[in-house]
Amino acid sequence: MTAFPVFDGHNDLVLRLLKGDATAEGVANGLNDGHIDKPRAVKGGFAGGMFAIYVPSPRDAAAREDEMQKPSYDLPLPDPLDEDFAVGWTERGFDALDDLERVGAVRICRTVDEISATLGAAEMAAVVHIEGAEAIDRDFARLHAYHARGLRSLGPVWSRETIWGHGVPFRFPSDPDIGPGLTDAGKALVRECNRLRILIDLSHLNAKGFDDVARISDAPLVATHSNAWAVTPHSRNLTDRQLDAIRDSGGMVGINFASAFLRPDGQMNDDFGLDIVLRHFDHLVERLGEDRVGIGSDFDGALVPKPITDCAGLPNLVAALRTHGADDALLKKVTHGNWLRVLRLTWGD
């Protein structure tokens, strides 16, 4: 394992398992394509991260990527999901993570000490994250049950509407100030997550929802996989005002490798160099400080830059940061230290 193990704010490996594009045994043995498996993780220093359980909408992801290669776009949001369908899919996601642990691909971690103990191991440290809380009931019984199964991070919305609030559409150019924020139920969900010490992910919330969380939450503000709107004016990215609120709360941002959120032209095209990633890095460090920037790759859920390609390519990013002037202390913070800091604050470890 590299001297700079990467703890990642967001990946969608579980989605590939649930869609049948990968198997737990394939992840353990390197028999699948995609961005993540155990052999490539060891090679690239991918030590683990937040493993998202995400319930997909029927819309064809390939069609969305085609639309996002135009100079501007405004994709319609999918319809809200049926709760029973979301519950079934989410519980299969927990089972898939259990399968990954059974075959030795991951260790499910519930504390920062468990993550730290796994950073040098062959298995990936897996923190359970739910992206879009459609499977959570209004009485929070399932929230408590999922917490008992290892849930430690939750995004109230993916981009589609939920009973908890409203997300941002895939729109370029656009700022994130689109639509209303959290519902009353969503505000109650934030308070319950605070009580359970579950991290609240801001990455897909619109501006008003972000502000609602900032007013209500007593935890650091965290966007697990987002970039700088000042570099790429995409609705999914964070404005300087939002970055300042994250900084003031002691939170952090994980840099998203999705091409459309990195490229200044907003296009889903992976043919570009790491200099664009470094532009986002510079802006985030300037607004947030060195202690509040990490990586939130979106591996297995996005088209990532060709110089990275998959988790085995992470040393290319580390080398680019080194050439850009990052010393050992900063590299340790960006690759994993900042995530351990904010998770310790959030979880009360």
Rank of each mutant, 00 (worst) to 15 (best):
V128M: 06
Q69V: 03
L119N: 01
D349N: 03
S203H: 08
P39L: 06
C311K: 03
V213F: 08
G26C: 00
V190D: 05
N269K: 04
G251H: 06
R241P: 12
E286R: 05
R102Y: 12
S174F: 09
P180R: 02
P58E: 00
M68Y: 11
S297T: 14
A28H: 12
V55S: 12
T323C: 11
E290G: 06
L77C: 11
M68C: 02
K38T: 10
D300E: 11
G26E: 00
V42R: 04
G337Q: 08
V127H: 09
G181N: 07
P305E: 13
A24Y: 12
G88D: 13
P307M: 06
H166D: 04
A258W: 13
A126R: 00
G209T: 07
G132I: 04
V231G: 06
L317M: 04
I178Q: 13
G48W: 00
I178F: 07
I255V: 10
R92C: 05
L100N: 10
R40I: 11
I200E: 03
A52F: 08
T162K: 00
L100V: 13
G45E: 02
F51A: 15
R341F: 05
V55Y: 00
P305S: 14
R138T: 15
K208L: 08
D177H: 01
T162R: 00
I255S: 06
A188R: 15
L18W: 08
D137E: 05
N237Q: 07
N237C: 10
R215N: 12
R138H: 14
K208A: 15
D33C: 11
K187Q: 09
K332S: 11
Q267D: 03
A145V: 06
K70S: 04
I130N: 06
A223E: 01
F261E: 07
I255M: 06
T111N: 04
R152A: 05
L317E: 08
M1V: 03
V87A: 04
K19D: 14
L15A: 14
A228W: 03
I53C: 04
G325N: 09
L182F: 02
L199R: 09
F170V: 12
H147Y: 12
I136H: 10
Y54T: 11
A135E: 06
E67N: 09
G155T: 11
K333H: 03
T162M: 00
G120H: 03
A148M: 13
I115H: 05
G132R: 09
A41G: 03
E192V: 01
D12R: 07
V157I: 15
E290V: 12
A228F: 01
A62T: 06
N206T: 04
R197Y: 15
T232A: 02
T224P: 01
V293E: 13
L15K: 07
V14Q: 07
S203I: 08
N206V: 09
P220V: 10
